[in-house]
């Protein structure tokens, strides 16, 4: 919300300042983070970062005043100012081009160091042989546990299905309240719209795996916790997507129904609902498909179902059984994917 009210100049300055501080810190990191201890001094490092940002902001201002366009300017300048003045230069000869290039290169180098990338570990002969032995076990699945696996897989599919089904009516109602064209742009409607959007965005940004941990503590480990986690995530995700369909409807039928003297509820039901039903169904099936995939993961943290079985066998190092589970997951995900694509194509 606040970003919208910030002028392009402010956004440009902030962007350039942070990029500058980031670059300087990355390049000087051997000096700044000379010891392990220095790396963990958060307040000291934050001060350095913000100190450098202020310097960067000044530089951004000076450079812009000199008429040279920075990366921040290119990104945030209003559209009518974005065209280059005079003869265009190739991107690599411009300041913003070099800025983007240097930032990307520095990030790649720092990233390789931080992720401890090691070509040696990848090509180590001993590791390759032990990995290929384990892979061999994985691809020689222990079919004797197949009945158990299928029982757990069925549980997982139901978990995803129930979570989606419960989420649909809740998201359906919320979607109209989260649509700008229904709630208006003024007064309490707008306030409610904004509040709801914030809640939806926050709950959507929390991964279902985190919700599963929370619910496992609340209702105990098992498929119920997993179902609740998927449900919460589905409500916010469906409501967000549904509300975008509501915002994209043709205004004509709305005006047509309003002109007959219909109430707001009648207008929504007669003019909007028929327009969004098909996209709703299509997205809901996609969501169920997604939920099946997520449900397999959620078992890892106490959400029950196939994921629970998988982590149990993995911890035992029973790779042939793990292989069987992975194959069943892959098959079900593939079937769900094909099924949802087929149905969505059919109702288009």
């Amino acid at each position: 919300m606040q970003k919208k009210s910030m002028g392009p100049v402010v956004r440009r300055t902030v962007f350039d300042a942070f990029v500058f501080a980031y670059l300087v810190m990355a390049v000087l990191s051997p000096i700044i983070f000379s010891t392990e201890e220095a790396l963990h001094q958060l307040s000291r490092n934050a001060s350095i970062f913000f100190g450098l940002s202020i310097v960067g902001a000044f530089i951004s201002g000076l450079v812009s005043r000199a008429g040279v366009r920075t990366l921040g300017e290119i990104l945030f300048a209003p559209a009518h100012k974005r065209l280059p003045q005079g003869e265009p230069k190739p991107w690599y000869a411009t300041l913003w081009g070099q800025q983007a290039l240097v930032t990307t290169l520095v990030t790649l180098i720092v990233g390789l160091i931080v992720t401890e990338a090691s070509i040696v570990a990848l090509l180590d002969k001993e590791r390759i042989t032990s990995a290929s032995r384990l892979l061999g076990e994985l691809f020689n699945p222990g079919w004797h546990i197949l009945p158990t696996v299928i029982v757990h897989m069925v549980q997982t599919v139901y978990m995803a299905f129930v979570a989606t089904l419960i989420a649909v009516p809740i998201a359906f109602v919320l979607s109209f309240m989260a649509a700008k064209n229904i709630m208006g742009t003024t007064g309490p409607g707008m306030a409610f719209y904004t509040a709801l959007r914030v809640v939806l965005n926050v709950s959507r940004s929390i991964e279902p795996i985190v919700w599963a941990i929370i619910f496992a503590l609340w209702v105990g480990f098992g498929p119920f916790a997993g179902m609740l986690a998927l449900m919460i995530q589905s409500v916010s995700s469906l409501a967000k997507q549904y509300s975008e369909y509501v915002e994209g409807v043709d205004e004509g039928p709305i005006e047509g129904i309003r002109s007959t003297g219909a109430t707001t509820l009648q207008t929504v039901w007669f003019a909007i609902v028929p327009q969004v039903t098909l996209p709703y169904i299509s997205y809901t099936i996609y969501r169920w498909d997604t939920n099946v995939r997520m449900a397999t993961i959620i078992g890892f943290v106490g959400g029950g179902g196939i994921g629970k079985l998988l982590i149990e066998y993995q911890l035992q190092g029973a790779w042939r059984e793990v292989g069987c589970i992975l194959l069943v997951i892959a098959a079900v995900v593939w079937i769900m994917d094909a099924f949802s694509a087929y149905v969505r194509e059919a109702i288009k």
């Binding site: 039928p253 005006e255 047509g256 002109s259």
Partner: peptide
């Protein structure tokens, strides 16, 4: 509004 009917350039019917 119920006492005043209205028709529109783009008909404004519910297509489905």
């Amino acid at each position: 509004r119920s006492r005043i009917g209205m028709i529109f350039q783009h008909f404004n019917l519910i297509p489905r």
